[in-house]
Design a protein around this nucleic acid. Structure first.
Length: 220
DNA sequence: CGGGAGATGGGCT
DNA sequence: GCCCATCTCCCGA
């Protein structure tokens, strides 16, 4: 499955292969790891912007006290209980949005948070949305920074991926990714679980002391 | 550079 | 009324 329109406009190396919906039906930890290195593309009015996913966190439904879906279904978290492959956007700290991808099958309440991407195309549009940012490394190195740069807000909550606005594609050339695993960031309950994943030595990962508190490393 | 305070408003008890 | 999956700025070293 190759989208020639995207391929022509984005020029990501190799062929553009859109991830099938089944990719997101797998268990959340697997999806969180396998999303690293994939390209997230957003269609704007007359152009596309894109970035390579470099940092994720897993949130595991009713087994995970840090997960928004831990207690019960509410108006805010209802999208998390739908089938994998939908977009869950929530509003946080009075100012910011975070972008998640729902995982597993209907009812699981699980998702993967996109914590950082490496800008790939549309850098000028990202800078225009974040004029105060000086370094390209600070454009998208955090879950809300990424949403600011990509213009993500509550309008996208509940949308399907690969359905017009957002696409996630892989580069079919077999790329090995060195993954570092740490605790998740910004939590009280559930903070000790090793559910944060990022690409080793990538300069677009969010800055945090936990980057040095490495629990394990794997190659996928 | 690393750490901490403040901003800010929706969600839920 | 308290909590919050954050960001930015400002401080001191």
């Amino acid at each position: 499955m190759v989208n020639r329109e995207l391929r022509a406009k984005e020029g990501v190396p190799g062929k553009y292969e859109i991830l099938p919906r089944e990719f997101f039906f797998k268990d959340t930890m697997t999806v969180a790891k396998e999303l690293l290195g994939k390209y997230l593309i957003k269609k704007e009015k007359n152009y596309y912007i894109s970035g390579r996913i470099v940092e994720t966190e897993a949130y595991l439904g009713d087994n995970d006290p840090a997960c928004h879906a831990y207690r019960s279904i509410t108006p805010r978290n209802s999208v998390m209980f739908e089938d994998g492959g939908k977009i869950y956007v929530y509003f946080i700290y009075g100012n910011y949005y975070c972008f998640n991808i729902v995982t597993e099958r209907k009812g699981s309440g699980s998702a993967v948070l996109i914590r950082a991407v490496e800008p790939y195309s549309g850098l000028n549009y990202m800078k225009k949305r974040r004029p105060e940012v000086r370094s390209v490394y600070d454009l998208t190195n955090g879950p809300a920074k990424f949403c600011l740069a990509f213009g993500i807000d509550r309008r996208y909550n509940g949308m399907k991926l690969n359905n017009g606005n957002f696409f996630i594609v892989k580069n079919p050339s077999a790329e090995r990714i060195n993954i570092v695993i740490t605790r998740r960031i910004g939590l009280k309950e559930g903070a000790d679980y090793p559910y944060r994943f990022f690409i080793k030595n990538n300069p677009f990962v969010s800055n945090h002391r936990l980057n040095k508190e490495i629990i394990s490393e794997i190659i996928v």
